[in-house]
């Protein structure tokens, strides 16, 4: 079975669907295990009062939540190779609030030949529905020539 990476060319952009960051999903990520006594944990990402006590206007969604979207897109694109040296560097230029929708995107920048593997270098980011970047960075992964795994192409755009 081929992977999306097998069909990507430099300049191609691949993206996930928009995902709405609801309070229910924020609680699932930041509230602690569901069977924990006293669930959910009260913190900046789950409780407005705690957020305000630190000077924030309201709950902010954990950056891990949409970095998870981004890494999920990389796994879907690259398969098991991601778990054997895939790397990502990111920054968060603006915060995300409960109710915002975000999607993850990657642009294939180049492939570098490494013998029986090729190093995929990508620009990665997440954006909200206003087109504002809420996470920016780069990712790299050495890809086997005969990649195997499932493929689930959400969308491929030509740059």
């Amino acid at each position: 079975m081929s992977l999306p990476i097998d069909d990507l060319q430099p300049g191609d952009i691949r993206c996930s669907k928009f995902r709405k960051l609801t309070m229910a999903r924020a609680l699932a990520l930041s509230g602690g295990p569901l069977d924990m006594p006293g669930w959910p944990d009260k913190n900046l990402h789950t409780d407005a009062e705690v957020a305000r006590s630190t000077g924030l206007p309201d709950v902010v969604v954990s950056g891990t939540q949409w970095e998870g979207h981004l890494v999920g897109l990389l796994v879907e694109t690259l398969g098991m190779d991601w778990f054997n040296g895939g790397s990502i560097q990111i920054k968060i230029p603006r915060s995300v609030r409960i109710g915002d929708s975000v999607r993850a995107k990657l642009r294939m920048d180049e492939f570098v030949d490494q013998g029986d593997r090729r190093l995929a270098r990508m620009t990665v980011w997440c954006e909200n529905k206003q087109g504002q970047e809420v996470m920016v960075g780069t990712a790299e992964c050495a890809v086997s020539r005969a990649a195997r795994g499932h493929d689930k192409v959400e969308q491929i755009e030509s740059a």
């Binding site: 900046l44 950056g63 778990f83 790397s87 920054k91």
Partner: peptide, 15 residues
């Protein structure tokens, strides 16, 4: 006091 994430560099080395 609050704490917030600023940046990260991550490498996945094994499943």
């Amino acid at each position: 006091m609050g704490s917030a994430f600023a940046s990260d560099s991550s490498i996945y080395l094994a499943p």
